[in-house]
């Protein structure tokens, strides 16, 4: 089975978007779920969150940051090319429910999985705001798409080239202090960002959902590599998640486990001449 790249868009110097023909995934996927992609024969199985889908065209949109060997390989593929494997949808759909107002917090490519979740909430009639963060203006993605349905789109950049200079957490705290009442926060981004978001929301006691993307192989519960401690219990992010109650996640352990193959990631790129 091969999966055709129907469309490819460069979002910035490191982040790309691909629309891929994958009928099984496109028919069933819901916001919050993810897929596993294998670029070529012998390739790694890489989990990526679903940014969008089109049930009629039977396509699924993924957004990825060129980071290691496999995403670099993926980025060499162009429109009209094929990827070897594309399987899903994996994980549980996000537990979205009606309430008075939700704010999403996205860091970097975390904006990709956040987008379909907030859009669905908005379609359910829930007013939504969003904070998008990035290193600089270039790395703030999907701003226009969020603007289509969010009441407020706030931006934070490390260098101040767009929006507030500082972290998404600074903006979040400011929003909360300004008196806007949020029933829920959905935070998706680097682990350290989600950890810091939770630090704030815990203080204000605003329920917070985070999305985890740990190291995994099969994505169906078979390998157990994606285990995370949530509320003192071991969970498998692939089948029990990827969304979890942010108050209960052991972020320090997640961060440690994320680094298990850091040396090999480096070695692989050298070994394969990249």
């Amino acid at each position: 089975m091969v999966y055709k790249i129907v469309k490819k868009t460069k979002l910035n110097s490191l982040v790309e978007m691909m629309e891929i023909h994958a009928p099984y995934v496109a028919r069933k996927c819901e916001p919050g779920q993810f897929i596993i992609i294998r670029v070529d024969e012998d390739g790694e199985r890489v989990p990526l969150t679903i940014a969008d889908y089109d049930r009629e065209k039977e396509t699924v949109t993924i957004i990825y940051q060129i980071f290691g060997y496999s995403t670099e390989l993926l980025s060499k593929k162009e429109e009209g090319d094929y990827v070897q494997d594309f399987v899903g949808p994996l994980g549980q759909p996000s537990p979205l429910h009606k309430c008075d107002r939700v704010i999403g917090v996205a860091g970097g490519v975390g904006a990709a999985p956040l987008y379909p979740q907030l859009r669905k909430l908005s379609r359910m009639g829930v007013p939504v705001d969003v904070i998008i963060g990035g290193k600089s203006a270039e790395f703030v993605i999907l701003k226009e798409l969020f603007e289509e349905f969010c009441d407020n789109v706030y931006i934070a950049t490390d260098d101040g080239s767009l929006g507030t200079k500082g972290f998404v957490t600074n903006v979040l705290e400011e929003r909360i202090n300004s008196g806007t009442k949020y029933d829920e926060v959905i935070a998706i981004g680097p682990l350290i960002m989600m950890k810091n978001v939770v630090k704030i929301t815990k203080e204000y006691n605003i329920p917070t959902t985070v999305s985890l993307n740990p190291i995994m192989i099969d994505g169906t519960g078979m390998c157990g590599g994606c285990r995370v401690t949530v509320g003192g219990e071991t969970k498998f992010a692939c089948v029990d998640g990827p969304d979890f109650d942010g108050f209960k996640v052991d972020f320090d352990e997640c961060m440690q486990r994320q680094g298990m193959f850091r040396e090999e990631e480096h070695q692989c790129k050298i070994g394969r001449g990249m």
């Binding site: 199985r45 192989i217 090999e264 692989c268 394969r272």
Partner: peptide, 12 residues
Amino acid sequence: MKGYKFPECPTP
């Protein structure tokens, strides 16, 4: 994933 062939096969 043929990890025994790493880094020729990229799964470590």
